[in-house]
Design a protein around this nucleic acid. Structure first.
Length: 880
DNA sequence: ATGGCCGGCGCC
DNA sequence: AAAGGGCGCCGGCCAT
């Protein structure tokens, strides 16, 4: 079996057994399975696809109704690699598949090539991420034939967590396609589908046609809707797009599968000198169209189920540019996030759940030919490109919805959360569209104030280490010189206060400050210049204090004040983007949103506005909708995470306390630990107990408690012990969560969320595995607590939104409105004349009375604190 | 120029 | 040996 090959360095390894390990299985098979690199088992036997993980994969094949004996198996790189040399790995990967894998495919001429894992996928298609692309279909062109490449997870990836069932079931979903591809039954996009009438996509070119579509929607009872627009942010079109053109490009609808409608609104194809905005219709016609669409999309009588994919985005555009407030009923992106999908992009779901996967190819091709700034500016794409694409978006959304309904993606377990998220999607469409009011004059003032403070602190800082900085300056200048003796452009030529490298060299090298080994970078072992490390140096080195002062102000300026102007609209309002689930941003490809069910917020992030100390001046930037007539009102769930923990653990002491009149749980915990009455608790003791409380929820160790509280580790250990003696139920519950996660690899919340924690199941053998394992156990405790606390807030937010939408506002032109949410708090702009009615109703009837039995039956009351004022940073508590 | 990584830091 | 859950965003730095 010693085949010859000397193409790369692998065959020159001293201990190599087999050069060019052969593929195995049925060489006349229509199914070729390609793995990544050959394994040592492969090397020993001289044949591909050996080892337990591969055996495991054969069983997965069987559960997808594929007979493994009828497949051909091989590797991307045909020799095993001993050792970890990255150069050799790279060389072999570039050389080997291009010689041998190609020949092998030519020989077998399979109909389907399964690419298992990233290496195989990249070698066969040039694409890189199996996690993102699994289940999609690609064409491999051979000489006189072509094959379909189907990427899915590698056996090793799945086998490392054998009970991680959602990975396996995703893989089975992918593999089920194989047989239908072979029999020609698997459908995917082809332009022929349009030509031969399989797909009926048409343009709405008249009011009559639109009326027909509306009637079709009422008849079918479902309507998938999607829009195309210029760029991603409806509130910053002017600063992100080049040239004239109306921002809203089109709206697409689908009422039945394979039938979709394209309503053009504005496009480069319509653009003339008289019509620079490129409108498709006259102004009168546009008005008629809008009024025809309004009842359909606002749907006051609930006649249609409106479906979208990440529809908050589309609804904002429709709201801003057509003045229609869509009422969303189902969202395929939000729904798919419940399935543990790594990627929820519509294009990807189309591969998995429809027969028009790949419809975006033509449009992607067109995009590549556009200059950078015009890419994804849909106004500039010709109608011939965007009509089929836009229609397919709506069609795919509808088909995915049908599949999700048939598959029961929204089930008994998660229906309540899903309902709450859909309502929140509608609520946040309004919140984001209306934006939050910013005090623009004060913004300029604060900008100047901070600028001056920064300069002052930096000057003082430089004075305090003048000689050392001069010395460092010279060194840094020398380092910046290139071969010609001139400073290189991309290098700094002098000391910069914001460079952690420079600070580190100044403090630890020049000034010889002692390094606390606890504060070193995990990766590089460099000494930290972070706040915790600097804090220790402050008593002996006042310059450390000065740097901390500078950083505080610098953070306030660059992180907040500097960032806001670009988000401000002409009404001095900022339109942040709240994320309701964790998903893959379709523009950047980044994962965004929170895995626990919390909301996240960006552009700008209103959930990390400084609140403590001098930082409140940033918070004062945010003001009510109308000066004097409105108040900014903040509703805050008091200690909601601890209350949720009490619901779970049913510890009688915790419950009794939370149901009592006063509710300073931190002081209470301290009194229990120190064996004194609540009013005897000192401030320091309360702070200590508060730190404990959070450490418990986050799974912090004694060392962490010690670090945060300043007590020694032994003392911290004792306190934790005492704490669990006081609340034995809590300790029991935490143990139970650990046990459950170890056995099942996931945990669930009261609201019905599932958090997959595959690492909880591993039996750790190495330090690294142990870290991952313990991190998973900490999450098993924190996830449901954080998730339910957020779901209580989300539920309340939706109820407030509904309540306010039918509230008889004393001045309907200046109604009280929701403005945002920060995890366990909800922010509103409330009319002073209505505050007396609205505030108590929200506090008592909504927040403190969630109205769901799986919460109320736990016997733990909820408490909402309320504060109000003329700005977000200037708030007074309201007593009841 | 642009993108990714990292240290650092703001919030709950 | 390492040991805090969940986010988004900034500037510096280095690779492309």
């Amino acid at each position: 079996m010693a085949l010859k090959c000397e193409a790369c360095s692998l065959c020159r390894q001293p201990n190599i057994g087999t050069v060019r390990i052969s593929g195995t299985g049925n060489s006349t098979s229509p199914i070729m399975v390609v793995l990544g690199r050959s394994t040592r088992e492969d090397d020993r036997s001289g044949r591909a696809f050996q080892g337990t993980a591969n055996q495991f994969f054969k069983n997965i094949l069987k559960s997808a109704a594929i007979n493994p004996d009828n497949c051909y198996f091989t590797n991307t790189v045909k020799c095993v690699q001993f050792g970890e040399d990255k150069e050799i790995a790279k060389e072999s990967f570039q050389v080997c598949p291009n010689i041998w894998l190609k020949k092998e495919i030519d020989l077998i001429k399979p109909k389907v090539i399964l690419a298992l894992g990233n290496d195989a996928y990249e070698a066969l298609t040039g694409n890189q991420s199996v996690i993102k692309d699994r289940g999609s279909l690609h064409v491999y062109s051979g000489d006189g034939y072509s094959s379909y490449v189907l990427p899915t997870y590698s056996p090793y990836y799945m086998a490392q967590a054998p009970n991680n069932s959602h990975l396996v079931s995703q893989c089975v979903t992918d593999l089920r396609k194989v047989n239908s591809i072979i029999t020609g039954k698997f459908g995917f996009w082809s332009d022929d589908l349009l030509d031969n009438g399989t797909l009926d996509y048409s343009v709405i070119d008249s009011l009559t046609k639109l009326q027909e579509v509306v009637q079709k929607a009422y008849k079918s009872g479902v309507l998938a809707c999607d829009i195309e627009a210029r760029k991603a942010d409806p509130y910053r079109v002017d600063s992100t797009c080049v040239g004239p053109g109306y921002p809203l490009v089109s709206i697409q609808f689908a009422t039945n599968e394979a039938e979709a409608f394209f309503l053009p609104w504005a496009n480069v194809d319509f653009q003339t000198e008289d019509n620079p905005e490129g409108f498709a219709f006259s102004e009168e016609d546009r008005k008629l169209f809008i009024e025809e669409l309004r009842p359909l999309l606002e749907d006051p009588d609930d006649r249609v189920t409106l479906i979208g994919h990440n529809f908050k985005f589309d609804a904002k555009w429709i709201n801003k540019y057509l003045g229609i407030k869509c009422k969303l009923d189902y969202d395929t992106m939000l729904a798919s996030s419940f399935m543990g999908e790594a990627s929820n992009r519509l294009k990807k779901l189309a591969w998995s759940y429809t027969s028009i996967g790949g419809y975006e190819d033509a449009q992607d091709e067109y995009t590549k030919g556009l200059p950078g700034p015009d890419q994804w500016d849909m106004f500039k794409y010709p109608l011939s490109v965007i009509i089929p694409y836009g229609c397919a978006d709506a069609d795919a959304t509808l088909r995915i919805y049908h599949r999700f309904v048939a598959d029961g993606v929204v089930n008994k377990r998660n229906a309540f959360v899903f309902e709450s998220i859909i309502t929140a999607s509608n609520a946040f469409t309004d919140i984001e569209n209306e934006g939050i009011h910013v005090d623009r004059p004060y913004l300029s003032q604060l900008d100047m104030d901070l600028e001056l403070e920064m300069r002052k602190f930096e000057e003082e800082f430089r004075m305090m280490a003048h000689a050392e900085i001069e010395e460092l300056n010279a060194e840094i200048y020398k380092e910046s010189l290139g071969k010609k003796g001139l400073p290189l452009k991309h290098k700094n030529t002098g000391f910069i206060i914001s460079s952690n490298d420079h600070i580190s060299r100044l403090f630890y090298d020049k000034m010889k400050m002692p390094i606390d080994d606890k504060h070193r970078s995990k990766k590089t072992k460099d000494a930290s210049t972070g706040a915790k490390a600097l804090q220790l140096l402050v008593p002996n080195y006042p310059i450390a204090r000065k740097l901390l002062d500078w950083r505080k102000v610098s953070k306030q300026k660059s992180g907040f004040v500097d960032a806001y102007p670009e988000f401000l609209d002409s009404n001095d309002r900022i339109h942040p983007d709240f994320k309701l689930v964790k998903y893959e941003d379709s523009d950047s490809g980044d994962l965004t949103g929170a895995i626990t069910g919390r909301l996240s917020c960006s552009d700008p992030n209103l959930q990390n506005v400084p609140a403590r100390g001098e930082g409140v001046r940033v918070k004062r930037l945010f003001i009510p909708d109308y000066k004097d007539e409105h108040l900014l009102v903040d509703f805050d769930f008091a200690g909601v995470e601890l209350r949720v923990a009490a619901m779970y653990c049913q510890d009688p002491k915790m419950i009794a306390y939370f149901n009592g009149d006063q509710a300073d749980f931190h002081a209470y915990a301290a009194s229990q630990i120190y064996g004194c009455s609540v009013d005897q608790v000192t401030k320091a003791q309360r702070t200590l107990a508060k730190t404990f409380n959070f450490c418990i929820l986050y799974g912090g160790s004694a060392a962490k408690v010690a670090e945060l509280t300043g007590v020694c580790v032994e003392e911290a250990e004792k306190f934790i012990e005492d704490y669990f003696k006081v609340f034995p139920g809590l300790a029991q519950w935490i143990k139970g969560q650990h046990r459950f996660a170890k056995q099942n690899g996931y945990v669930t919340s009261m609201f019905g969320r599932v958090r997959h924690l595959a690492d909880a199941m591993i039996v750790p053998k190495t330090r690294e595995e142990n870290n991952r394992h313990e991190a998973a156990l900490r999450r098993a405790v924190n996830s449901p607590v954080q998730g339910d606390a957020s779901d209580l807030t989300l539920l309340s937010l939706g109820r407030i939104w509904k309540y306010l939408s039918s509230f008889p506002h004393s001045d309907p032109s200046k109604p009280s409105r929701l403005r945002g949410s920060v995890h366990d708090s909800i922010l509103l702009s409330v009319h002073v004349d209505d505050a007396g009615e609205i505030i108590p109703h929200i506090k008592f009837n909504i927040l403190e009375n969630p109205g769901v039995d799986f919460i109320t039956s736990k016997g733990v009351s909820l408490r909402a604190d309320v504060s109000a004022g003329p700005s977000w940073g200037d708030q007074t508590d309201i007593e009841f």
